[in-house]
Design a protein around this nucleic acid. Structure first.
Lengths: 220, 220
DNA sequence: TCCCATTCGATGTGATCACAATTATTATAT
DNA sequence: ATATAATAATTGTGATCACATCGAATGGGA
């Protein structure tokens, strides 16, 4: 029942993982032979992995000049969130109308998990569960293409969070937002779920831009 | 000033063109050696082109089983338009607030061109100019990532239109919509531009789904 | 006649190599 | 000393080949 994985696919996953956890910085040069030895593969799967990542927007390549991890600046993040807010709101509205009781229970359980993780100081775990919380909601919308789009964005955003950090004082607000989003879902209130999601994601954008400003001030 | 193009890039463009004009049907098997001879290239650039197109969502590949042009059904189109409506509205709103007079004049000129093309019965040309009309508006929003997303969708949608056709009676409605979108832009009225764009794209979705239903009824 | 196993052909994947383009380095001249 | 030109290294790109995997055709047995 497992999807077959080619070597190129696993190299792709490894590159993604390294971008996420900082092993490969934003803007880092991605040399084929270098990555090949790093991952214990031959150059060929690396080439294919890089090409694929270019199509996904995680890697930027110029002909005959090689590939680099995409660079992120404030404008890029702003643009990404503009797209993200639009799509997340659309999916959240549909999810509220379409979600069944089992799905609702799953989402509620994920929020409990998240609170538990935060309570014991496991912030990284909390971030991961937070993604699953939102993802599970959007799954209910039944839009696989939209979900894929958000997943790809998410990897980039998670990479940024892991580098520039997040604002701890945000956590209380997140709990409140999630609580009310859950209520909107329970009442199958698409409008409420939409506006709350819009606010929630907009807050995330504001926080990330603030953290980025702090980081840029520090490195200037 | 020209961007350098690798062979893999031009093969990619040729595959895209063939998908658009029907040389490669939806769901068509994409054999590496076959495409290589078709385009007069070696297998290597074709492989890279296919990988890249997979990342862009135009081609679907399974490990060890090869690649195919994506297949489109009613649900897929519905999902695509859900994303598209959300993003187009967001960009249209920002465009209305940000566009300058020169940009406005360009958009108005494009609509005149489109009307002229339609008047002389050049529907294919009209469709192409129609895309430039909307694209020029979204350019004013200054969101390169959003624009890229819409461009990728557009290729698929254009491919569908070229196969299943469009409803000629739509043309009058398009002219009216464009006229009012232009007015909203001129007045820098983001709300008006947004809701009009939402309606305009939703109409396109309805029409495309109707055409698809006709096509499916015919081929059943 | 139908089903399952085997075999064979087709095709994707991975490896290695030769070449071309780019970038860094060095040398030379002003 | 600086700028420019020539040269050397690095690295991406394209080509060819060997192998693994998948699917279809074939054949044998119930």
């Amino acid at each position: 029942m497992d999807e077959p994985l080619s070597l190129a696919d696993s190299v792709k996953d490894m590159i993604r993982a390294d971008i996420l956890d900082g092993g490969l910085d934003f803007g880092a040069r991605l040399r084929i032979r270098e990555l090949a030895t790093r991952y214990g593969a031959s150059p060929m799967p690396v080439r294919e992995a890089l090409r694929s990542l270019v199509g996904e927007g995680l890697v930027a390549a110029v002909a005959n000049k090689g590939a680099r991890v995409v660079t992120v600046d404030a404008d890029y993040i702003r643009h990404l969130f503009t797209i993200r807010i639009a799509v997340e709101v659309a999916l959240a509205r549909q999810a509220a109308l379409a979600i069944d009781d089992a799905g609702l229970a799953e989402v509620a359980a994920l929020e409990q998990e998240r609170l538990a993780a935060v309570a014991r100081g496991d912030f990284a775990g909390g971030v991961a569960i937070n993604q699953r919380f939102h993802r599970r909601i959007y799954e209910a919308a039944g839009n696989a293409e939209g979900l894929l789009l958000l997943d790809r964005h998410w990897l980039l955003l998670a990479a940024i969070w892991s580098r520039y950090g997040y604002r701890p004082e945000r956590l209380g607000g997140v709990a409140s937002d999630h609580d009310h989003i859950l209520r909107a879902l329970a009442e199958r209130d698409g409008d409420a779920c939409g506006v709350m999601t819009a606010a929630h994601v907009t807050k995330a954008r504001q926080d990330m831009l603030a953290q980025l400003a702090v980081h840029e001030a520090r490195t200037r």
